[in-house]
Design a protein around this nucleic acid. Sequence first.
DNA 1: TTTAGCACTCTCTTAACGTGAGTGCTAAAG
DNA 2: CTTTAGCACTCACGTTAAGAGAGTGCTAAA
Lengths: 342, 342
Amino acid sequence: MTGLNERKQQILHAIVTDYIQTAEPVGSRTLSRHYQFKLSAATIRNEMADLEELGFLTQPHTSAGRIPSQQGYRFYVDTLMDTASLTQYEEDYLTGLFTKVQKKQEIDQIIQQTARALSLMTSYTSVVLGPQFRRSAFKQMRIIPFDPERALVVLITDTGYIRNKVIKLPKALSMDELNQVVAYLNSELTGKTIASLTAARLRRLRNDLYARVDIFNHMMNMLEECTAEGESRVFIGGTSNILNQPEFKDMEKIKHLLTLFEQGERMMFMLETSLDGVSIRIGTENNLAEMNDCSLITASYLLHDRPVGTIGVLGPTRMEYARVITVIEEIASRLNRLIEAL
Amino acid sequence: MTGLNERKQQILHAIVTDYIQTAEPVGSRTLSRHYQFKLSAATIRNEMADLEELGFLTQPHTSAGRIPSQQGYRFYVDTLMDTASLTQYEEDYLTGLFTKVQKKQEIDQIIQQTARALSLMTSYTSVVLGPQFRRSAFKQMRIIPFDPERALVVLITDTGYIRNKVIKLPKALSMDELNQVVAYLNSELTGKTIASLTAARLRRLRNDLYARVDIFNHMMNMLEECTAEGESRVFIGGTSNILNQPEFKDMEKIKHLLTLFEQGERMMFMLETSLDGVSIRIGTENNLAEMNDCSLITASYLLHDRPVGTIGVLGPTRMEYARVITVIEEIASRLNRLIEAL
DNA sequence: TTTAGCACTCTCTTAACGTGAGTGCTAAAG
DNA sequence: CTTTAGCACTCACGTTAAGAGAGTGCTAAA
């Protein structure tokens, strides 16, 4: 039913790319002059009227040019858009960045640098979701007493994510017993993802360790805390970039967006639902009122073929889709390689 | 020389408080009506002219009311301001928050929650500097091998700050040797602050461990990384609050501020230079062009009488100084108690 | 089916004009 | 000498009006 003939598609393509560049409604004149259709403005006008009726274009007001509608953008990214490529300089920049970042093996820093690079290269706002603890697999647990009453529990996941928690030690617990508990937990949990720590399994563990229930409780608290959604590991970069977009000259919109950025849980939700590969969500497809004028392009990064986190770019619906997609694909793949090597 | 007579001080006080509330230039009429001076508008006008000449007031334009100058605010906070106090509700809110936050002993989370509370209670933007690694004292170091080639080095400071780093293990190193190295480092370093790890002392350590120079290098790298300024542990909350201030209706200013917020190093610099107690820096006193219209109120929080971090509130120069100061003092003292108990 | 022409629409910019709040000055009153 | 009343003056702000410009839809000719 979206049977747009060749010419309509060309015109739509021209309108979208022109509007993405200029942020101005594009009229028939500009179109017939700047793009080499062998058509007059009048003909294009007719086609544009058709495209509007079909829902691909909108008119801000009666006597202005047309701008793409959400549906228009959707059609553009689905079938019209041609792929962009990085300049040599950009490639080099990324190689430099990633070799530098590789040295400081802290996963948080890597993620944060990635966010920075994303916003720097795209001039939009970047949104990055760190490795999700829940999707990571348990690798090892260690306990380090550091004074008579307390000990540090260290949890290492296969995503290079390390989590500590200080716990109070019950008095009547010898070092040996403690180590036994830890050893047991290690043997039981290694390789399991955090998400798979269902209540049932936790109960079973609790049973096995009934003799040491007190210490176990402390450890479990830590695990449960990690399992809980709470952990909002969202990094945002280039916030100020949104202010450069003419569509955000309106204070209110900006305020809404900034407020959204501060709500870790909602950001998580927004990023989490994205599937593998590159996902493009335009305007209302984001299911968030604040994002109705925004598009979000995301890619998840993997560890052992398991998606553990997401990187994304957030801009106005009038976004340089082609360019952003190649940037994000490139960065995601580099990030994948880097994480896999950790 | 700032010999402002009683009446001038009263008038200045009235102008500052009024302007803080309304954000509108305040004229002689409003003053004589709303505040019970037994003076006519004309008299007040004369005094205002004097105050302007003395540098405490400014006129946005010839025929508008007066607004406090930077010097005016300074005089206000130094000698005029009366102290505010928290409502019962606010007290309760804080008690609730801090008992809740105490449970999750992760220092980062505590800090972040503190920032949130600050911005929530003041309606300004909060800026919090986490415990500075450099100012912390070494408590214990542990090493945890977690696969044949790699180990995790854990560093615990007395500020409750825990830092991990994965290092590669040299092949020819037995577990025993490793533990010896760690034991030696522990005995040498416990109690010392990170900042005191001078190059000389590091060299001496290196000497003592000459036989195990390879592993030592790895550990030292970690330490040096921590010593380096790099660690930008700045948390910002309530960014969107600045948009509510009428003085920031100008896009450019906001952009500058947001950009500043993203520059961790500069934020650190801004917060770090503050001394003990509550510090108030008004406008250009911040030594940052972006902050010329802003005031920053900070307090440092202590551990064992040593200042290790800073909490602050950032708003327009037209800030509710009295209120913010009491809020920040209250929160800082609670934070102190909490950290001391860690 | 395409194109040229034309009247029409609507926004945006600029200028002009009151309006109102507030000032500074002067002269009278305390 | 200080305070007050009166008055002319200034300047931002909001409203209105006019004009320019870009673009459209429609009609009629190619």
